[in-house]
Design a protein around this nucleic acid. Structure first.
Lengths: 154, 154
DNA sequence: CCAAATTCATTCGTACACAAATGATACCAG
DNA sequence: CTGGTATCATTTGTGTACGAATGAATTTGG
């Protein structure tokens, strides 16, 4: 930090050691806006399900068998309280159903109903397009780079 | 989709045309997890203010003069209803104050109180470290690349 | 085998986030 | 000047998101 390092300005050019702090250039802020844009794209394709609801269904689809609510939560990165709300709403719509685990009476198994399964299957192609549109400002090569770096931050 | 195009696998290698859909590999999902990690880091450094609250304060700090609630909302990417809640809470804590615009009685001007100003100033160094820690899994060069690409998605 | 620690789910409270509806004010065209 | 339109803020309703507390059931250590 003693003088020679203005070469490093390329690295953190957004604010460097100048004492300035610009909200616009902070990862957290940009991350939040990217999220917002993604959610907007999502709901333009799928308006009757939220991203977390879809995530739960998609995950249930690829684990196949039943999972407990907590386990599912871990898989879709939601805490217990959040998962409960999501599952409750999906259940109210008949897309998932709950049953007790036999052998461990604490556990509540979640599974797709026939309609839930049909619904997710039908939405997968749209979900793929949502991903594509979200990434559309980047070239294929940039997409690959971006996803690799983003995954390291998650 | 008829056979020859496995060359394209480099492009969307995460799932390609195989019919598989893995939630883990979708931008939206990873973006959400990256957000979660960032928020966790944020609150480990600043536990008495949320990221949106800090964003509002930081923005007020760098616009200097007063701004209307809606204008501030645009600057920090929050809609009118969300901004109202954030400002209400900051006001309850004495960090910002509101006044009527003279000449346009619809507008509600938001400004930092002395304490609000002191608070943000004191938090800026922590905010810088939050950004650094969030980006710490990446090398400086990767950070530059990542921020450039992320900004294009936001 | 039993008490202590752990796990699963639920509940409560707080804080975004956004759509839609509403009321007040301001602006603009005719 | 006036009626239509746009803007600012607020309110309501729904849906995440998470910390903390609670109770029931299971697991573990001694």
């Amino acid at each position: 930090m003693t003088g020679e390092d203005n070469i490093l300005k390329l690295v953190d050019a957004e604010e460097s050691e100048s004492g300035e702090y610009h909200l616009q250039d902070q990862v957290g802020f940009i991350l939040r806006r990217a999220q917002q844009r993604h959610v907007a794209i999502f709901s333009s394709y799928i308006s009757d399900l939220t991203p977390p609801q879809f995530a739960a269904l998609a995950k249930l689809r690829d684990v196949g068998g039943d999972t407990s609510q907590n386990q599912l939560g871990a898989l879709v990165a939601m805490d217990a309280a959040t998962v409960k709300g999501v599952i409750d709403r999906l259940r109210a719509r008949g897309l998932v159903e709950l049953s007790r685990h036999d052998g461990d009476r604490r556990r509540l198994l979640v599974s797709l109903t026939v309609e839930g399964r049909r619904t997710v299957d039908a939405l997968i192609p749209l979900a793929t397009r949502i991903t594509e549109e979200t990434l559309s400002p980047l070239s294929p090569k940039e997409v690959a780079t971006f996803l690799k770096l983003l995954a390291r931050l998650a």
